[in-house]
Structure formats: structure tokens, C-alpha cells
């Protein structure tokens, strides 16, 4: 479950920037210090004294906690997933790349400026340039939903969105759903119901499900809606409705029954039993 930020711009051109970035590595946040102290109290002093910085800390944590990080420490993921070094990226010289586009938008409630190649998708921009690696690249062709993010309130596929089209827009990714260490109810429901196995599709599933709650509230219809002409707001979604409306998110591990249960629980706020009936 541990998300490590490894920002390695794939474009060789950017490598000269790395030297600059490394010097400006941000220090550990108080929350990160506390978490580290809880897990490895003896090492904390040493880590702080030796002036280890965040990137090293994250690497250390990944080694130290492999297999150790119980799900009650899930909030740790949020800490690690905060974007690093966003300021460094702004330093790029605009004319330095062919067809560069200067982009200002809002990512997880933070005003963000970044120079992108016109060809760059929103997904690659989030992952490679802004350090938000929660959104996943499953297929890069709109066929799996792993890259789902919420743009101006609506779920979309970041792999088929050009970053340049996001000027002035507001993007929410999986990293932006929790409030501090408090999980979004949909995240909590996915945890409770084991709405995942390998977890690869999960950020997309959760972003998709969060936006689905808004769609249901607004009364949007789906292909399985019984009477499309009758219109009402605040629809309570049946299993069939959830499956149809979540069909844009493929789960190779087949955690579907758990995902449906989690979404039901998040929507109703009531404890939901899993439905193990496989309809074929």
C-alpha cells in the first residue's frame, strides 16, 4: 500500500533540472516525523540529525516498512503521497521545448503552474511532472479507467486528456480526497470492504466512485435505469446500477463484489453485507 514518490523525468532533457531540484529537497513534515518516530523510534534522532531529506526518508521507509505497514496506518500513504518539489518544475525555460504550453491549473486545491509539452497527457503531467503518482496508467487508451481523476467535478480519463486543455480547471486526484489524515468516506469504505487486491485499479475506482455519488445525487441516468423518462434526484443505487455505472473501471483482480459493497455503504452510510452471488 505504500506509495513512494520517485520522480524520474523520462525526458533526458530535464535532467539538468534534477541537480537544482535535489538541493532544494524539502525537509520532513511534522506528521512524517511523528509517523517515523512511531514505527522506528530509535532511528528518528539519527535521521533528523544526519539531515536526511524527504526523498531519502521515503526510500528508507519503503524498506523499513515493507510488510510492516498495517492498514491502520493507512494514513501514512497520504503523507507520502504529498507532491514534492512542485516549485522546481516552474523554473523550466518556456522556449526550451518545442510546442511548450504554459499551464496554470488547480491540482488538489493547490494553484499549480507547469510547462508541458503539447503532447503531454494530464496523466503524465500529474505523475511525471507534479509527482502525484496515485493516478495509474493501465492502458493509456481509455479502456481501463485506472487513470480516472475528477476535473471540475466530473470523472474523466486523464490518459485521454491533454494537459494543455486543463488551463484554469480544477483537478482532484486520489491524493486530494482525504482531509489531512481523515479518509474520504469512499476510501474508508473501500478499506473496510477490501475493495481491491493488488490495488492498481483502486485510485481510479475510488475517484470514479466519488464522482458517481454526485451523479446519483443529481439524478443522472444510466443504461440500466428502468424508466429513463421519469426524472428524480438523489437516486439510491442498486447493485445493478452500481455495476453499470462503474463499468468504466476494470479490475483485473476481480474485486467487483467488494467494490459494489463499498460504494453501497458509502452511499447509504449504513453497514452493507457483501453480495457474493455471481450472476452469469
Amino acid at each position: 500500500m505504500l506509495v513512494i514518490i520517485e520522480r524520474q523525468p523520462t525526458i533526458a532533457f530535464f535532467s539538468f533540472q534534477l541537480i537544482n531540484m535535489k538541493q532544494k529537497r524539502t525537509a520532513l513534515s511534522p506528521e512524517e516525523q511523528k509517523l517515523f518516530g512511531d514505527l522506528m523510534p530509535e532511528e528518528l534522532e539519527e535521521v533528523l540529525d544526519s539531515g536526511l531529506h524527504r526523498r531519502h526518508f521515503l526510500k528508507l521507509m519503503s524498506l523499513a516498512t515493507a510488510g510492516l505497514l498495517a492498514s491502520h496506518l493507512i494514513g501514512a500513504e497520504q503523507l507520502f503521497a504529498r507532491a514534492a518539489d512542485i516549485d522546481d518544475i516552474q523554473d523550466l525555460i518556456p522556449g526550451a521545448i518545442e510546442n511548450g504550453v504554459n499551464l496554470s491549473f488547480n491540482v488538489n486545491s493547490k494553484a499549480t503552474k507547469v510547462l508541458v509539452d503539447s503532447r503531454m497527457t494530464l496523466l503524465d503531467t500529474l505523475r511525471e511532472r507534479i509527482g502525484l503518482t496515485g493516478s495509474k496508467k493501465g492502458c493509456d487508451h481509455g479502456q481501463c479507467g485506472a487513470c480516472t481523476v475528477i476535473v471540475d467535478g466530473n470523472r474523466v480519463l486523464s490518459c485521454l486528456t491533454l494537459a494543455a486543455t486543463c488551463e484554469g480547471k480544477s483537478v482532484i486526484t486520489i491524493e486530494g480526497l482525504a482531509k489531512g489524515n481523515e479518509l474520504n468516506p469512499m476510501q474508508a469504505a473501500f478499506l473496510k470492504h477490501d475493495g481491491f487486491q493488488c490495488g492498481y485499479c483502486t485510485p481510479g475506482q475510488i475517484c470514479s466512485a466519488v464522482a458517481l455519488m454526485k451523479e446519483a445525487k443529481e439524478g443522472q441516468a444510466s443504461f440500466v435505469t428502468k424508466d429513463i423518462r421519469a426524472q428524480q434526484q438523489g437516486i439510491l443505487l442498486t447493485d445493478e446500477e452500481i455495476s453499470e455505472r462503474m463499468s468504466g473501471n476494470i479490475c483485473r483482480c476481480g474485486a467487483y463484489p467488494n467494490i459494489v459493497a463499498a460504494i453501497k455503504e458509502a452511499q447509504t452510510g449504513k453497514s452493507v453485507e457483501q453480495n457474493w452471488l455471481f450472476v452469469g
Binding site: 481509455g142 479507467g145 480516472t148 466530473n154 470523472r155 474523466v156 480519463l157 485521454l160 486528456t161 470514479s208 464522482a211 458517481l212 451523479e215 441516468a221 444510466s222 443504461f223 435505469t225 429513463i228 423518462r229 426524472q231 455505472r245 462503474m246 463499468s247 468504466g248 473501471n249
Partner: peptide
């Protein structure tokens, strides 16, 4: 939805919620 439900149905039969939003 009320006067051209055939169109609603056909659109909703296509792609996924994310793609239809785009």
C-alpha cells in the same frame, strides 16, 4: 429524457461514464 428518450438510451449504451463526460 422526456421527449427523446431513445437518444438518451443510445448515448448511455456507449463507452463509459468517464468517456461520456469528455
Amino acid at each position: 429524457r422526456s421527449d427523446y428518450p431513445l437518444l438518451s438510451k443510445a448515448i448511455l449504451a456507449g463507452a463509459s461514464a468517464q468517456i461520456r463526460n469528455m
